[in-house]
């Protein structure tokens, strides 16, 4: 699948922001008044920047409000509702914390739940697609959720939570790669099932339907960069798990350390998310003979 920058920026930044909002909601940082301003501002900035980036993926964003209408069947629509609900609930929670100095913990817990539900709904947009076997597995939401929470914990400067969650995110990442690598073959999709001609023999492309490229090939048969996938996986793993873990453990806590840790972690998450798309193979590639069945 084509790794569109807008979608990568969206999922990474809103994931970080929502992870932090969840921690703020459950009251990990027990501060009120002016001291609470910065943490909330950071969490909202990440989340909202991400959401804005997502609209750049739409060709007709002026109609984006319509995306709220189909929550009964569409995960994308549910994500729209959940993100709006999270921002509203956590917004009220934050205003009360900052300006009135009171913590309405029911609201906080609700907001935290909604934040996590938003991350899961984003993941479900990919997980639901049977056409992309690599994504179509329960490990996908766990992968995205653990990354979001680990990022949130780093931003919250909560060392013990960060260490546990970084470990979980690392394990989920490894599992996502390992399971993902086998999914396509496990599903039994091949040029033979795609064309229905398998009972006669083996099928190969003779002539493609068009000499140039098209939307399908650009969007769903993205093959650039797969050559470097292994190297990028190593870079992603080191920057998501190992380096942030070392930084959090070894360096003295403080703003500078947090900035350093989150920058490294963020770069790792971007790399991982780029691979998430670039390595994902869509079954339509079979019709173009672009995959050895």
């Amino acid at each position: 699948m084509h790794p569109a920058p807008s979608v990568i920026i969206f999922t990474v930044l809103s994931g970080l922001g929502l992870g932090m909002l969840a921690f703020l909601g459950i009251g990990v940082l027990d501060v009120q008044g002016v001291a609470a301003f910065m943490p909330f501002a950071i969490a909202f900035t990440f989340t909202i920047t991400g959401l804005i980036a997502s609209t750049f993926h739409l060709d007709n964003p002026q109609r984006a409000w319509r995306a709220f209408s189909q929550w009964k069947t569409s995960w994308l629509s549910r994500e729209a509702w959940l993100s709006a609900a999270t921002l509203s609930v956590m917004g009220i929670f934050a205003i009360n914390n900052i300006f009135r100095g009171i913590t309405i913990s029911v609201l906080g817990w609700l907001g935290a739940g909604l934040a996590m539900a938003t991350v899961v709904s984003t993941a479900m947009i990919y997980t639901q697609l049977k056409t992309v076997p690599r994504w179509n597995h329960w490990i996908t939401p766990i992968h995205m959720l653990t990354l979001s929470l680990a990022g949130g914990a780093i931003l919250m400067q909560h060392t013990s939570a960060a260490l546990v969650l970084l470990t979980c995110a690392g394990l989920a990442q490894l599992a996502h790669w390992r399971i993902g690598d086998r999914q396509f073959a496990a599903r039994g999709h091949s040029m033979e099932t795609a064309t229905g001609l398998g009972d006669r023999g083996s099928v190969r492309m003779f002539e493609p339907p068009h000499t140039g490229s098209n939307y399908l090939l650009k969007e769903m048969v993205y093959v650039v960069g797969r050559r470097h996938a292994l190297k990028l996986r190593c870079i992603a793993f080191v920057t998501i798990v190992l380096l942030p873990f070392l930084i959090v453990v070894a360096l003295p806590g403080g703003t500078l350390t947090t900035c350093f840790a989150i920058t490294i972690f963020g770069l790792g998450t971007f790399t991982s998310r780029w691979l998430f798309f670039a390595e994902a193979e869509h079954v339509v590639a079979l019709y173009y003979g672009k995959r050895d069945g």
């Binding site: 984006a64 969007e219 769903m220």
Partner: peptide, 25 residues
């Protein structure tokens, strides 16, 4: 009513949907 998100084209196994590159629908 189409916002041009492209998700439906991702969901189709057969490559039967194409997002128009000019109109974005």
């Amino acid at each position: 009513a189409c916002i041009g998100c492209g998700l439906c084209a991702w969901a189709c196994p057969y490559g039967a949907r194409e997002l128009d590159q000019v109109a974005g629908v």
